[in-house]
Design a binder for these strands. Structure first.
Lengths: 108, 108
DNA sequence: CAGATGTACTTTGTCTGTCGTTGTAATTTG
DNA sequence: CAAATTACAACGACAGACAAAGTACATCTG
């Protein structure tokens, strides 16, 4: 329905949100975004995994490998304290962004 | 306050909105964005003028030069019918984008 | 039991829009 | 008369998203 390009800059906080409660991995995050938005937003794999790399590089998440009983072990990600702070900061910024754009977009 | 990078993809409809009523030119558009958002968003000149070029290339606006009695003649832009339609389409898309992001950003 | 489908990624290269920098030229203000 | 403001234009850099393709293992289907 909508593309990641539009969400640009907000993929990171979206991913962090889904890690707030418990660690997760790529495929699960992808499924969650799909279902939560009722398929309105389907994140591309490349977008998702490059977001993971960026977030880890910035210290907002940490990776560890799960010990799956069968199959390839997944790479799990856990949010860090810095990640929680970054999420809050981005949330606040999003409120301002909405206000700004809503001055110019009047949908009737 | 906030950067164009965040607004990315919505500069075009913002500009089109400001042309809905009457033609305008770069500097005026820039001032209007500043004042309407109470300085929360100040568009960069390069961003603005490259948006004009893109919008004109896509047939959403047309340029003409004003006949100022003094000073350099300004380049004015007028929105086209296609531009109005594009604006509406983007407005609708924005509503969905807001919904999508608001599923993940809970600001308390 | 072969092939399709689903899970779970990784790599590479391309494109678009924004940004920093610099430059120009005329007008207005102190 | 110098500095600030108005009003652009050209250039190259960069980050994030995208398309395309490949890897590997597991499970379901005819």
């Amino acid at each position: 329905m909508i593309s990641s390009d539009i969400i640009r800059g907000y993929n990171d906080p979206i991913i962090l949100f889904l890690l707030l409660e418990e660690p997760s991995y790529g495929y699960e995050i992808s499924r969650k975004i799909r279902s939560i938005t009722q398929e309105k937003y389907i994140i591309k794999e490349t977008t998702l995994y490059s977001a993971f790399n960026r977030l880890e590089k910035n210290g907002y998440i940490e990776s560890f490998s799960g010990n799956e009983s069968h199959g390839k072990p997944r790479t799990y990600y856990r949010i860090t304290q810095a990640g929680r702070e970054y999420y809050l900061q981005k949330s606040h910024e999003w409120q301002i962004t909405q206000e700004v754009i809503n001055h110019f977009i009047i949908d009737e």
